[in-house]
Amino acid sequence: MATFDLFLADHIARNGNKGRRHASYLSSTIFDEFVEVLTAQVRSVIIEEVKEAKYYSMSVDSTPDITHTDQLTFILRYINKAGLPVERFIAFIPIEAHDTESLTSEILTALDKFGMELRNCCGQSYDNASNMAGCLSGVQARIKEMNPKASFVPCSAHSLNLVGV
Results as ranks from 00 to 15, higher is better:
residue 100 T to H: 10
residue 100 T to R: 12
residue 101 E to V: 13
residue 102 S to Y: 15
residue 102 S to A: 12
residue 103 L to D: 03
residue 103 L to N: 06
residue 104 T to M: 06
residue 104 T to K: 13
residue 105 S to L: 08
residue 106 E to Q: 13
residue 107 I to E: 06
residue 108 L to N: 12
residue 108 L to K: 15
residue 110 A to G: 06
residue 110 A to Y: 03
residue 110 A to T: 04
residue 110 A to M: 08
residue 112 D to V: 05
residue 112 D to A: 13
residue 113 K to R: 15
residue 113 K to T: 12
residue 113 K to D: 11
residue 114 F to L: 12
residue 114 F to N: 11
residue 116 M to S: 03
residue 117 E to W: 01
residue 118 L to A: 05
residue 119 R to Y: 07
residue 119 R to L: 08
residue 120 N to F: 05
residue 120 N to M: 03
residue 120 N to E: 02
residue 122 C to Y: 04
residue 122 C to G: 03
residue 122 C to N: 02
residue 123 G to N: 01
residue 124 Q to F: 01
residue 124 Q to V: 02
residue 125 S to R: 05
residue 126 Y to V: 04
residue 126 Y to E: 00
residue 126 Y to Q: 02
residue 127 D to L: 05
residue 127 D to N: 10
residue 128 N to H: 02
residue 128 N to K: 07
residue 128 N to R: 04
residue 130 S to P: 02
residue 131 N to L: 06
residue 132 M to K: 07
residue 133 A to Q: 08
residue 133 A to R: 15
residue 134 G to A: 06
residue 135 C to M: 13
residue 135 C to Y: 12
residue 135 C to N: 15
residue 135 C to T: 13
residue 136 L to W: 08
residue 136 L to C: 06
residue 137 S to V: 10
residue 137 S to E: 09
residue 137 S to K: 15
residue 139 V to E: 04
residue 139 V to N: 09
residue 140 Q to K: 14
residue 140 Q to W: 11
residue 140 Q to E: 09
residue 141 A to L: 10
residue 142 R to N: 14
residue 142 R to C: 07
residue 142 R to I: 02
residue 142 R to Q: 12
residue 143 I to F: 02
residue 144 K to E: 04
residue 144 K to A: 08
residue 144 K to V: 01
residue 144 K to N: 15
residue 144 K to C: 10
residue 145 E to R: 13
residue 145 E to L: 10
residue 146 M to P: 00
residue 146 M to K: 15
residue 146 M to V: 01
residue 147 N to P: 05
residue 147 N to W: 01
residue 147 N to Q: 07
residue 147 N to G: 05
residue 148 P to V: 10
